[in-house]
């Protein structure tokens, strides 16, 4: 069972990963989007960190709900509703003491919610292209971090169909999707911290 200290450590690890890589995410987004992904995600996770005492005191589902709501309200780009929806859907699906199987099932349901929010499908050069392989890895017993990293790399040759990057058409090919990168960063941060505290 992850206690409040563990929940705090997980939140700080997620926020730390996003904030430390904000410039890189912005650079990726400048290549194929509107150049605000790093800045937006940093703003959102700084708002989560500002509330970490309250949030980490809550059980996992309620904490995720608070994180999702904060991201929706504070991020300011499309990634706010997308990551917010991911967190809110996980909040709905996860029990207070989730197993790996719970995580896999909840992530699959959350992926459907993100698809609906972004009107997007897998294979369109988005965060979904990382989240889906992560859910599959959680289910099969494979390493979700390796799956996330490989999946983010695999967005480089993809052509964007959704979001600002889709305006570029073929010119979106050759760049990693910033949302795929931020998803992979979050997966790696969560997994590393879970290994430490579980």
């Amino acid at each position: 069972m992850i206690d409040d200290k563990g929940r705090r450590a997980l939140i700080e690890a997620m926020a730390g990963a996003v904030i430390a890589h904000a410039d890189e995410l912005t650079a990726l987004d400048q290549a194929i989007g509107d150049g605000d992904h790093g800045l937006n995600m940093k703003r959102g996770f700084e708002a989560v960190l500002a509330d970490v005492d309250t949030i980490s005191a809550k059980p996992i589902p309620e904490a995720l709900k608070a994180i999702g709501t904060t991201l929706v309200m504070k991020v300011g780009g499309a990634s706010g509703p997308l990551y917010g929806t991911l967190a809110l859907a996980l909040a709905k699906e996860l029990p207070a003491d989730p197993s790996r199987a719970d995580l896999a099932r909840a992530l699959k349901a959350a992926i459907e919610a993100v698809k609906a929010r972004g009107k997007s499908e897998i294979g369109q050069k988005t965060m979904l292209d990382v989240l889906a392989p992560v859910a599959a890895a959680l289910e099969s017993g494979a390493d979700p971090v390796a799956a996330a990293q490989a999946a983010a790399e695999a967005t480089v040759p993809m052509k964007a169909i959704r979001g600002r990057a889709s305006f570029l058409g073929d010119r979106s090919i050759g760049h990693m999707d910033p949302g795929a990168r931020s998803s992979a960063l979050l997966v790696a941060a969560i997994a590393a911290k879970l290994d430490e505290i579980a």
Binding site: D34, G77, A78, G80, R117, G118, R164
Partner: peptide, 11 residues
Amino acid sequence: DLGGAETNSEM
């Protein structure tokens, strides 16, 4: 106007 405005409005 652009994508995020639509997604945030739907939210």
